[in-house]
């Protein structure tokens, strides 16, 4: 009777695993990115329900059932999933069994310098160019100022529309650091009608603007390369040598 119950549970677990994650029954090994975690609920919960609940808590991180133990369920998940499980107040135990959780990146101990980089395309004779003319407008760059003291580690910004990617390079052209800053050239105009509905947009790019980028005060940094990231490609804007 007991053996049949156990076999039924194992079968249920395998089905739940396949249904939830479309994966074969896992082994008790973890890759570098995955963690083996033991989880226990406050109350007895049916296995299939428990797995579904854990998968829901960890979502969108992957979670794979490994085994049922007397002390809880063994599951595999990513660091992201592990942190989601840890943060769930309804789980009695969330214990890391195998795998490493490296410390989150601490605030960098670097001193930062705010570089003021002047972008210039004033040879065009225009105060600004339309977005459609931007690709054909070459900008030059020069460092016009350095501010220290007030600079702090910049927030982690995502590259995207209206942003510039500033890469700090060494003398061999290897990237040492990168930061994303708002594109100071961009001026966006959006028209509205009397009902408040937006009716049109026009983007302009100033032909003279100053990029301000917080870069570590690292003497190995020899140049800054500024690009406008878009859809995986990075359109070159300008490069400036610091040495």
């Amino acid at each position: 009777m007991k053996a049949r119950k156990s076999a039924r549970r194992a079968l249920l677990a395998a089905i739940a695993c396949l249904l939830c994650f479309g994966m074969a029954a896992p082994k008790e090994s973890v890759s570098a990115e995955q963690l083996l975690v033991r989880v226990a609920f406050d109350q007895d919960t049916a296995l299939d329900g428990a797995i579904a609940q854990l998968a829901d808590i960890a979502k969108p991180a992957p979670l794979t059932f490994v085994a049922e133990r007397r002390t809880g369920l063994l599951i595999r998940t990513s660091r992201n999933g592990y942190e989601r499980l840890l943060a769930d107040p309804d789980l009695r135990t969330v214990r890391l069994v195998r795998g490493n959780v490296p410390a989150r990146q601490q605030e960098t101990p670097h001193e930062f310098v705010t570089y003021e980089i002047r972008l210039n395309a004033s040879e065009t004779g225009a105060e600004a160019v339309a977005a459609s003319e931007l690709a054909a407008t070459p900008y030059t760059a020069s460092v016009v100022g350095r501010r220290t003291g007030a600079a702090v580690a910049p927030p982690a910004r995502e590259a995207g529309p209206g942003m510039l990617l500033v890469r700090a390079l060494d003398t061999a052209g290897e990237e040492l650091y990168r930061t994303v800053v708002p594109d100071p050239r961009l001026v966006r105009y959006e028209a509205v009608d009397e009902d408040g509905r937006f009716t049109g947009r026009t983007d302009f790019y100033r032909t003279e603007a100053t990029v301000r980028a917080d870069i570590p005060a690292d003497p190995a940094i020899a140049a800054l390369r500024i690009t406008a990231p878009s859809k995986g490609a990075a359109a070159g804007v300008a490069e400036v040598n610091l040495q």
């Binding site: 105060e127 600004a128 001026v187 105009y189 302009f204 603007a209 100053t210 301000r212």
Partner: peptide, 16 residues
């Protein structure tokens, strides 16, 4: 600014 009547802009260098 840039010949659009309703486009109100400021001198970015002064702002910064």
């Amino acid at each position: 600014c840039f010949d659009i009547r309703r486009l109100l802009c400021a001198d970015d260098d002064r702002v910064e």
